[in-house]
């Protein structure tokens, strides 16, 4: 008797330990993600420990990452645009060293470079120079321009996504978020009606033999890797959209939505079909016994009764589709 109780307690304890371990693991992963993610916001968008320097007389104190990008893309060519004097910006990066100095002047191990660079910025007032901070002279006479750090509001509302831009990266995820939302919204819009219709057909209309053939096939579809769906989208759907709407390119959000919808379909169909079939027979009979026909029964009793299962199906299906963005 005591042994039995001891075993019961033991099993209880083991269950508790395993559940708390899994909960802890999930929590740790989330914490890790946030820790790693937030460290981004305390770093400067400048790559490779670069500094931006200007001459002492230049009134510019700060530049933003988009401004730097525009300057390097030659879209901004005058200091006035960023709040300085009316003067043309002369760009200098570490790659331009050989245009200004000979190898002898720099020295074999770049030992004279910091001093040369310091003098160079001083001598050309309208120069904007970018080079690694290890070449910044100790008695540097010009001044370094501070660049606004990555921050959360800009991260979320920024429209530009250039994570590899030189010399300053731009991390605006707004278009990414909006794109994902739009594509998944339209994917749900396509997939849910079709999936629900198929599920209803399989659960309530199709005869048993047909269902036994259809169900494994649809479940098999859920196992196809997303690359295959993506390939299918690229080969079939993209040209189709291209031709139908007479667009220059077919790689639109619509194509993405359709591929995602197709990917989500098998999950939506099987899960919601199970939910629909789980409607108690007594409930269906009650409805039919009151003179409701088959379709009234489906619309008024079976669907409302399996609503939680159907919404779970939609979430699972779209979750899979969004999770495996490979296809898009």
């Amino acid at each position: 008797m005591t042994l039995k109780r001891f075993i019961e307690k033991l099993i209880e304890g083991m269950l508790m330990i395993s559940s708390s371990i899994s909960a802890l693991a999930v929590l740790l992963i989330v914490l890790f993600l946030f820790k790693e993610g937030f460290s981004l916001f305390s770093t400067s968008p400048l790559e490779n420990h670069n500094v931006i320097v200007v001459s002492k007389g230049n009134p510019i104190e700060k530049l933003t990452a988009p401004q730097i990008k525009d300057i390097f893309d030659q879209k901004i060519t005058n200091w006035q645009t960023v709040g300085g004097k009316n003067d043309t910006i002369i760009l200098f990066t570490i790659n331009d060293v050989s245009n200004y100095f000979s190898e002898e002047e720099i020295g074999e191990n770049f030992e004279y470079l910091p001093e040369k660079l310091s003098r160079l910025t001083d001598s050309i007032p309208s120069m904007l120079a970018v080079y690694p901070d290890k070449y910044l002279a100790k008695d540097f006479k010009g001044k370094t321009v501070s660049v606004a750090k990555n921050n959360i509001p800009d991260f979320i509302s920024g429209r530009e996504w250039f994570p590899t831009a030189e010399p300053a990266v731009q991390l605006g995820v707004l278009p990414l978020i909006l794109g994902t939302l739009m594509v998944s919204f339209f994917a749900i819009l396509f997939a849910l009606p079709v999936g629900l219709a198929t599920a209803i057909y399989m659960a309530e209309v199709a005869d048993e033999r047909l269902r036994k053939i259809l169900k494994p096939i649809i479940e098999l579809l859920a196992g196809i890797p997303s690359v295959v769906y993506g390939f299918f989208g690229l080969i079939v759907i993209v040209p189709l959209i291209h031709d139908t709407f007479n667009l220059p390119v077919g790689e639109t959000a619509l194509a993405g939505s359709i591929v995602l919808a197709i990917m989500a379909l098998p999950t939506i169909i099987t899960v919601s079909e199970d939910a629909i079939r789980n409607t108690p027979r007594s409930m269906k009979e009650a409805s039919l016994a009151l003179g409701a026909n088959k379709w009234q029964t489906i619309a008024r009793v079976i669907i409302p009764n399996s609503m939680s299962g159907i919404s779970a199906a939609a979430i699972l299906g779209i979750g899979r589709a969004i999770g495996e963005t490979m296809a898009v």
Partner: peptide, 13 residues
């Protein structure tokens, strides 16, 4: 022809 079943089977309404 109305029918009442063995187990109460109200709708989820």
């Amino acid at each position: 022809v109305g029918m009442v079943f063995q187990k109460p089977n109200p709708f989820p309404k």
